[in-house]
């Protein structure tokens, strides 16, 4: 399959969750509290795309499918896209566009306070994901983009601190994240030895 077709396919798949949310909102079938539903879904999709983008390198190596690497950036940018939608829906749909409350809630609530730097990291990595920035940063580019591991850990804590009655999601996403991070840890240790 030519690379452009693959890119287009991934782009369409990445937009799919957002389009179902928009369509659901227009049709008014997002349940009793559409604001809460959109907030939850955009948050989960940000985390899912973060995990998918982090799965690319191990998959490409282990399955010897180098062509996968080309698509890592777009998948990472979709994590950023859903992260921003997550923040915007909290700000507008839950807080009614009250900036003062956005600031006070972020400071007061530990689970929001750890979510904020996760999103800031994604924004930073998104901005520096272009070819131009790769060239400018040189070998520092990779060092900078290792911050994605921190973003994943913070995003998971953001989820874990909101557990009320069931640990299912926290365990599921935590286990996947742990597998992906341990791949890096293993490689790092092998290089050191």
């Amino acid at each position: 399959m030519p690379i452009l077709v693959r890119r287009l396919l991934i782009f369409i798949l990445g937009c799919w969750p957002a389009s179902t949310l928009v369509w659901g909102a227009v049709q008014q079938n997002l349940g009793g509290d559409p604001a809460q539903y959109i907030l939850l879904q955009t948050g989960f999709w940000a985390l899912r795309f973060l995990l998918i983008s982090l799965a690319v390198t191990p998959l490409a190596r282990l399955a010897k499918q180098r062509w996968l690497m080309v698509h890592r950036r777009m998948l990472g940018l979709f994590a950023l896209f859903y992260g921003i939608l997550h923040l915007l829906s909290y700000y507008q749909f839950i807080l009614g566009g009250n900036l003062e409350r956005l600031v006070s809630e972020t400071i007061k609530r530990p689970y929001i306070l750890v979510g904020a730097p996760a999103l800031l990291i994604l924004i930073l990595l998104g901005v520096t994901s272009t070819r131009g920035w790769m060239r400018r940063l040189g070998r520092h580019w990779q060092q900078l983009h290792r911050l994605v591991y921190l973003a994943l850990i913070l995003a998971w804590i953001h989820l874990y601190w909101q557990v009320r009655s069931s640990y299912f999601d926290a365990v599921l996403y935590g286990a996947i994240g742990l597998v992906l991070l341990s791949f890096r840890a293993r490689n790092y240790l092998i290089k050191r030895i």
Binding site: A25, G32, D33, P34, A35, I38, Q92, F93, I94, L95, G96, R101, S104, E105, K108, R109, P110, Y111, Q162
Partner: peptide, 21 residues
């Protein structure tokens, strides 16, 4: 509450762009 401010509430049904706060 440690997780939610109790000063306000969203009365359902609540619109998206004009939440019923």
């Amino acid at each position: 509450h440690p997780r939610w401010s109790q000063k306000e509430e969203r009365r359902l049904p609540s619109g998206l762009f004009h939440p019923n706060i």
